[in-house]
Structure formats: structure tokens, C-alpha cells
């Protein structure tokens, strides 16, 4: 059978997160993503030089609202982000940590920006893998805290999110000053995704250091639309659009564990089966689907989901036969 191959002119940018001692940081490993010259996992058509990376979420405040099944693997460390992060690295084998500074948010603790920087430092000291720093989604607080976090993590080449169309300057300047990679977020809107990249680039920030967060949803909640947006981003990148050539991060854990299908108890929906398996599976299915749409990093929560997604990546990154 003849293989019909598309001839693409562009490629996804290659982005490295984390810095080893030699590179001015303290990480033992770094994560490199992107570089694809074809659609996801079409090994016969182009090059897919790097495996997608798997991050585990660590929160800086006690996640009381989490379902029991999700709290269980972290039972003893939920109130200590540094220990939690270390557990994610050592026991559960995450490629990266995604530290979520949720407590900054006025509704979730309204903690001081300085505390966020201290948490970043503590997590960096407790781990040796690359760090993603995730703001609390309150622009005012993020603008106060993220520059301090960027400073605290100077030299570590973190990935820091997120810049949006309405709030990108402070974070772009901080990432520029302390040499971090930046997450550019848009509300499942390809036009805004491109616009945020243009705006950040205009600040003098290199487009090659941006990672796109298209704000993906969970399985069962309009993920077809997410899929088509991510596919269009990737097609534009392969077509040579420099402002769409960034690798993509998907915040899967956050989205999937908000769904009823992931967290409802068996007693409520006997037909749905045991939530101890169902929740992680919902998360893993969402992640695998988004990897097939072009995701380069997925933020996960349950270790079982991480394990299952890793197995899928092993299969997808095989020699393509």
C-alpha cells in the first residue's frame, strides 16, 4: 500500500523546561517537548523527537474539596507542598511538578505573595525535576506573586503560567528577567490563542519560549471542540505560522476531577462502578485524547492516571508499526 504523506513546511517549536547544575539550576533532569514535524504520532510522516511530558499537580493549600479517591495517594502530605512534590517525583515518577498557587486567590485563602515565593523555593529544594508554576487565576494576586516566584526560581528555567489576552505584561516581564518559559492561555479560542502569542512576543519575549494552554476541557464536556482547536493550532504550526508554532500544555487533572463522572460515588450511581477506578480512568482517557490532539505536556492528578497515560505514550511513541 502506498503511504500518502503530507509535506509540511513548518515544525512545532522545541521548548526545554528545567535547568541542571551545568545550566545554572539545580535540577537533575530537564524536560524537552515539541519539535514535531507532523501531526501527533504519525511517525511514518515526520519526526516526533520528544515524548509528551507528564506533570503531577501539587497544591499550596489543603485541597479539602478533592474527592477521597484523589486525596488518598497523598494522604500524609496534603498540607505540605514540598513533601507532596517529593512524593510525586520519588514514588509516582512524575516528569515534572505543577505547583498550583491556589491559596493566593482571595476566595481560597488570600495568602501573601511572599508565601508563594517561599513555597516555590521549598518545592524546588525538595525535588530534582522541572517545575511548572501555576497562578491562582486572580490577575491582581498573580501579578503580585508570580514575579516574586520567578525571582525565587531564577536559574531553574521553570514554566510559569499564565499570561492571558488581558493580563500578560507583568508575567512576560518577569519571565524575561529571570529566564523562565511562559504559558500563554486562551479560552478555547484559536484567534485569541494567536493574539496572546503576538502580544507576548511584542514585549520582546521570544515566541520560541512560549507554551500554549488552549484551556482544554474534560471528556464529556465538549472535548470535541477542544480537539478541533488543538488540531487547528497544530495544522497552523505545521503550515509555518510562527505565532502558532508553540507546543501545547493541557491542564487535564483540574478539568477531569471537576466532572461528576470522575468523582461521583458508587453509592450515588451504582451502574457507573467503583469511583476508585472510574475517576483515574476518566482522567487518563481525557489525557490520552488530548495527547492525540497535539498535547505536549499534560498536568495530571491521580498516580494511577499517570501510570496509564505513560503506558499509552509508550505505545504511541513506539516505532509506529
Amino acid at each position: 500500500m502506498e503511504e500518502i504523506k503530507e509535506k509540511w513546511t513548518g515544525a512545532v517549536n522545541t521548548v526545554t523546561v528545567g535547568a541542571t547544575e551545568k545550566e545554572g539550576g539545580t535540577r537533575k533532569s530537564t524536560v524537552t517537548i515539541g519539535g514535531e514535524t507532523t501531526l501527533p504520532f504519525l511517525h511514518f510522516e515526520g519526526s516526533i523527537p520528544y515524548r509528551p511530558a507528564l506533570a503531577l499537580d501539587v497544591l499550596d493549600n489543603l485541597p479539602e474539596e478533592w474527592p477521597e479517591v484523589l486525596k488518598e495517594p497523598y494522604r500524609d502530605v496534603l498540607d505540605n507542598p514540598a513533601q507532596w512534590a517529593a512524593l510525586c517525583e520519588e514514588k509516582y515518577g512524575a516528569d515534572m511538578i505543577c505547583l498550583r498557587l491556589k491559596s493566593l486567590h482571595p476566595d481560597w485563602g488570600d495568602t501573601a505573595p511572599e508565601r508563594a515565593a517561599e513555597t516555590v523555593q521549598a518545592v524546588l529544594e525538595a525535588t530534582t525535576i522541572p517545575l511548572i508554576i501555576w497562578g491562582c487565576d486572580d490577575p491582581e494576586k498573580d501579578n503580585l506573586a508570580l514575579p516574586l516566584c520567578a525571582q525565587a526560581a531564577a536559574g531553574e528555567n521553570c514554566l510559569i503560567g499564565f499570561a492571558t489576552e488581558d493580563n500578560y505584561k507583568t508575567l512576560a516581564v518577569a519571565c524575561l528577567a529571570d529566564h523562565h518559559k511562559i504559558v500563554a492561555q486562551s479560552p478555547i479560542d484559536i484567534n485569541i490563542a494567536k493574539q496572546v502569542n503576538i502580544l507576548i512576543s511584542e514585549m520582546g519575549y521570544k515566541p520560541e519560549d512560549i507554551v500554549i494552554d488552549p484551556n482544554t476541557g474534560a471528556l464529556g464536556y465538549g472535548i470535541e471542540y477542544t480537539y478541533s482547536i488543538m488540531e487547528r493550532i497544530r495544522l497552523a504550526a505545521l503550515d509555518g505560522d510562527r505565532m502558532m508554532a508553540m507546543p501545547i500544555i493541557c491542564d487535564v487533572g483540574f478539568d477531569s476531577w471537576r466532572t461528576k463522572e470522575a468523582k461521583a460515588l458508587k453509592e450515588q450511581f451504582p451502574g457507573w462502578g467503583d469511583e476508585g477506578v472510574r475517576g483515574p480512568l476518566w482522567e487518563a482517557m481525557t489525557a490520552v485524547l488530548l495527547l492525540q490532539a497535539g498535547g505536549d505536556i499534560v498536568n495530571l492528578r491521580h498516580p494511577m492516571a499517570l501510570e496509564k497515560v505513560r503506558k499509552q505514550i509508550d505505545a504511541l511513541m513506539g516505532n509506529g508499526e
Binding site: I190, N191, I192, A193, K194, Q195, N197, I198, L199, E202, R232, A236, D241, R242, M243, M244
Partner: peptide, 9 residues
């Protein structure tokens, strides 16, 4: 792909 600053892009 359209964006507000598509000319700049």
C-alpha cells in the same frame, strides 16, 4: 488564523 493583530503576526 485570524487574531486581532493578524497583520503584525
Amino acid at each position: 488564523i485570524y487574531s486581532n493583530d493578524y497583520l503584525k503576526a
